[in-house]
Nucleic acid binder design. Structure first.
Length: 333
DNA sequence: TAGGCCATCTGGTCCT
DNA sequence: AGGACCAGATGGCCTA
């Protein structure tokens, strides 16, 4: 399934190649055209090498390394041209990278047109998403919605966590109540997560779009230290101890702050309802749970719209291509 | 104003 | 020689 998930993204990545042709920077083009027309003179073919004169070679010991060529005007010009071409290539390369990142943003659980996740947050969320899906397949059952959000939000900044939780329509109070039944320790009996004592805030994502007024979702997530416990109930967790494991470096998250949002505790069915909205593509055969709200459905849903003002254009992916049908079938079994 | 994020330029390294 | 990739530097934009 995961391979099919990747194959979904792969074409997008491959399409990036075409971007080069479609998005050639006009001004760079013209610059280059101007330089292409520049004919390099014959003089540069037999340029004298710096310090190559007999007198110099006799007086000074030979220097190691490539001999420096005298920078004639033609050589300087050609060097500039080379640099400009390199700059153009680099720019295109970075644009490709950003396009791929945009495509990735569209397939991770939470997508907002107006408030994009930062690059690093996108990568973190994507990683968590893949791990979560893998864990779901490995365990053969749906995780609890709280666990699901926790898994998705590991290592994410507070604003991103808020966004994801908002996308999931997760009730803040309920989440925290479950997560920290005995007060400020924020330690779930069912969760072996440890809690980091400090928080990481992303200024951009902590904008009102993410945390506006009553809808800010304040969740306390956990450091990576409890990863194995969550992802490997059967001891089959990936090796998170590898040196390159991002959890070592990513800012630990501790989401705190005042609670707001809905005052009512959602019922179990309510929670499942929210949960399955995220899985709507996965559980569409459940009439009471499937909800196609896309970018507007969340608002039209009415019952939950008051909980998601900052995420008005954020949506989950219910119109996903075939790879998600696997999970759909899975969650309907 | 500080800090985060980003785009771009640039020089270095590696490979063909 | 030239292209791909990378990382550092820099400046702009935005938000708290």
């Amino acid at each position: 399934m995961l391979s099919r998930l990747f194959s979904e993204v792969l074409p997008d990545v491959q399409r990036l190649a075409h971007w080069v042709n479609d998005n050639e920077n006009e001004d760079c083009k013209s610059k280059e055209e101007g330089h292409e027309a520049c004919h390099l003179g014959e003089d540069e073919l037999d340029e004298p090498l710096e310090g190559s004169s007999r007198a110099e070679s006799e007086m000074e010991p030979k220097k190691r390394g490539p001999k420096k060529r005298k920078m004639t005007a033609a050589r300087v010009e050609r060097s500039k041209l080379r640099r400009m071409k390199a700059n153009t290539r680099e720019r295109i390369r970075m644009h490709d990278l950003n396009s791929a990142l945009d495509n990735l943003r569209k397939v991770v659980p939470c997508y907002s047109k107006t408030q994009k996740l930062s690059k690093i947050e996108t990568l973190r969320l994507a990683k968590n998403y893949i791990l979560t899906l893998g864990e779901i397949l490995r365990n053969g059952k749906r995780p609890d919605v709280v666990t699901y959000v926790q898994m998705l939000c590991k290592g994410l900044s507070q604003p991103t966590t808020n966004l994801v939780a908002g996308c999931l329509q997760l009730n803040t109070r309920n989440f925290l109540t479950e997560q920290c039944p005995d007060g400020p320790r924020f330690h779930m009996p069912s969760s072996p997560f440890s809690v980091h004592p400090y928080s990481y805030r992303c200024p951009r994502l902590s904008s009102p779009h993410y945390q506006s007024g009553t809808s800010a979702v304040n969740l306390r997530t956990h450091s990576y230290s409890g990863y194995e416990s969550v992802y490997a109930p059967g001891g089959t967790s990936p090796d998170y101890s590898s040196p390159d494991y991002e959890g070592q470096h990513s800012p630990p998250v501790c989401l705190n702050g005042g609670l707001s949002g809905r005052q009512q505790e959602p019922s179990e069915s309510d929670r499942n309802y929210h949960y399955s909205m995220h899985y709507s593509g996965l559980a569409s055969s459940r009439p009471s749970h499937s909800l196609h709200f896309g970018s507007s459905g969340a608002r039209s849903g009415g019952a939950h719209s008051e909980n998601v003002p900052p995420f008005h254009d954020a949506h989950l992916h219910h119109d996903r291509p075939p790879p998600y049908e696997d999970l759909n079938a899975f969650f309907n079994n």
